[in-house]
Computed example of a mutant assay.
Amino acid sequence: MEDPLDAPQDDGRPLRRGWTTGACATAATKAAYTALLTGSFPDPVQITLPRGEQPAFALAMEEQGVDYARAGVIKDAGDDPDVTHGALVMSRVRLLPPGTGVVFRAGEGVGTVTLPGLPLPPGEPAINPMPREMMRAAIAEVAAAEGATGDAEVEISIRDGAALALKTWNPRLGIVGGLSVLGTTGVVVPYSCSAWIHSIHRGVDVARAAGYPHIGASVGATSETALKRLYGLPDTAIIDMGDFAGGLLKYLRSHPVPKLTIAGGFAKMSKLAAGALDLHSGRSQVDLAALARLAEERGAGRDVVAGIAAAPTGLAALRLGHEVGLGDAVAERAREAAKTALRGSEVAIEVLAIDREGNIVGRAG
């Protein structure tokens, strides 16, 4: 494909942007539909993205049968650590009778929706609304140029998609059999983590549609285990928010649930307590001076306060402040920060601070 746009520099090195699965599926669809009408595949094939960019994609495969054409594109996610980077995205297109419209099918490696709450109803292939619109527009463009009706069946498949889907949220979201075809702009911005935040939002949607009165949000596997042990929540009621507390809390402003329990390591919760909504180590740090002040407020002696301020890690600070309930103090401040981020949304908040062994060392709400 032609040169992707460069992302803003990170540590002085320009990061390459890439293309979403939806953009790749659109390029493959346009190539296959063109071949079906003209007998030849455009290679490279150029598409128009929602914001007007016009990237061109090289074809990795071409196949033409009696009543179908199929094309494939290798996904290039740029410098983003995308699980689908390098995957072969294929589109098999057949003509349909006039007036049928464009019909989408899930081929091998593309999942099917089974739970309510997602942008698509149960039974539909997991090809999101924007990629569908992009493919319809590409078919309409070719149909207008070739004097065709634009009625077609589009079957999207992704090589090894079922195995790759096990590394994503899809099983928890009730998307079975493979990956989702995603993308709202067609462009992958390196380390924007848009796919993760998208999954957080869809996880909330599924939990709301299921009517759960209580959902959990975990920073990682240890805190998720602690949540399950404490409340017995099903997988579909637990959001793997990772470091993206803000991505979850901002979405809950307009998509509230009755009760939310946030669980994470003590150090991560201390960052939330300080007001950080991105808990990644590269974007927020444990404020040891703030922890020392919290301990002092709870009656810690001068030596303990000084030790916390000079502690090498958050957990070391926790051990020093254990006797004065530093864990509970951090959980309470984190709960206040979460409530502030919700901006009045009617969500009852609880916060659990967890140690590395999975024990609850702080609790509020």
Score class of each variant (00 low, 15 high):
Leu227Glu: 11
Val204Ile: 15
Leu120Gly: 02
Leu320Gln: 11
Gly183Phe: 03
Gly107Arg: 03
Met90Leu: 15
Leu230Glu: 14
Gly247Gln: 12
Lys30Met: 08
Pro234Asp: 09
Val89Glu: 00
Gly362Phe: 10
Trp196Arg: 14
Val93Gln: 03
Val257Asp: 07
Ala273Asn: 10
Ala69Asp: 02
Arg172Phe: 01
Glu297Lys: 12
Ile156Asn: 00
Ala163Pro: 00
Glu146Lys: 14
Leu326Thr: 03
Ala311Phe: 11
Tyr212Lys: 00
Gly232Thr: 09
Ser270Val: 08
Gly177Phe: 10
Arg16His: 02
Gln9Thr: 14
Arg70His: 04
Ala329Pro: 03
Val187Phe: 03
Ala162Leu: 09
Ile74Glu: 05
Ala237Leu: 11
Glu297Ile: 01
Pro122Lys: 03
Thr222Val: 15
Met90Ser: 15
Thr26Asp: 12
Leu120Pro: 04
Glu62Tyr: 04
Leu249Cys: 13
Arg363Leu: 13
Gly344His: 11
Arg202Met: 15
Gly150Met: 13
Gly325Val: 04
Tyr68His: 15
Gly242Glu: 08
Val204Asn: 07
Gly246Asp: 13
Ala331Gly: 09
Val83Glu: 04
Thr236Asn: 06
Ala317Glu: 02
Ile354His: 10
Ala317Trp: 07
Thr225Leu: 15
Pro312Lys: 15
Ser192Glu: 14
Thr313Leu: 14
Ser281Met: 14
Leu248Cys: 09
Pro44Leu: 06
Val257Gln: 06
Gly174Gln: 02
Asp11Gly: 10
Leu260Gly: 06
Pro44Gly: 12
Val347Tyr: 12
Ala31Ile: 04
Ala27Val: 06
Met130Asp: 05
Asp235Asn: 09
Asp11Val: 08
Ala237Lys: 11
Val257Thr: 10
Tyr33Leu: 00
Arg293Phe: 01
Pro256Leu: 08
Leu288Lys: 13
Asp205Tyr: 01
Asp287Cys: 11
Pro42Trp: 07
His198Leu: 15
Gly150Pro: 01
Pro14Asp: 01
Pro81Val: 05
Ala311Pro: 09
Ala25Gly: 11
Thr222Lys: 13
Ser270Ala: 15
Ile239Ala: 08
Ser157Lys: 05
Asp11Met: 13
Trp196Ala: 12
Ile47Pro: 00
Leu233His: 02
Pro258Asp: 05
Ala331Phe: 05
Leu120Ala: 02
